[in-house]
């Protein structure tokens, strides 16, 4: 989170909406620990990362859709072991749970 502050400040000062994505759980092998964070603004600008690059693209798409639809905060799961998992997996074979939320607080 710390590494996102400068960009988040800039976006907020410019009145840009953004979604914060945080790793809240991992199963098996995961490249980033809980707390790893990324943020996506309404123009598709991205800072931070939540994996070794495996799922960031899918997070951006999901975040933009959330902003468009004014969606509530939610947990999304990436990885092959979950029935409801997104189509995108982690190359390391683990499962990663992300909490996505528009930064309104």
């Amino acid at each position: 989170m710390r590494e996102l502050l400068d960009d988040l400040d800039r976006w907020r000062a410019a009145g840009k909406r953004c979604v914060l994505g945080r790793v809240v759980g991992i199963e098996g092998s995961g490249p980033r620990d809980p707390g790893a964070a990324m943020a996506v603004n309404e123009e598709g600008e991205v800072v931070g990362s939540v994996s070794g690059g495996c799922v960031e693209g899918a997070v951006v798409a999901e975040a933009l859709e959330m902003l468009r639809a004014n969606s509530d905060a939610k947990v999304v799961t990436f990885g092959y072991s979950d029935d409801e998992a997104f189509a995108v997996g982690l190359t390391c074979g683990g499962t990663i749970h992300l909490f996505l939320q528009e930064l309104t607080w």
Binding site: M1, R2, D9, R12, A73, F99, L103, W105
Partner: peptide, 23 residues
């Protein structure tokens, strides 16, 4: 805002924790 206060504490290296209802 809560975010501004979080940013202030992180930059000041003040120990702090953020708790959020995820489900």
């Amino acid at each position: 805002s809560l975010y501004d206060e979080l940013a202030r504490r992180l930059r000041a290296h003040t120990p702090t924790a953020l708790a959020v209802v995820i489900d």
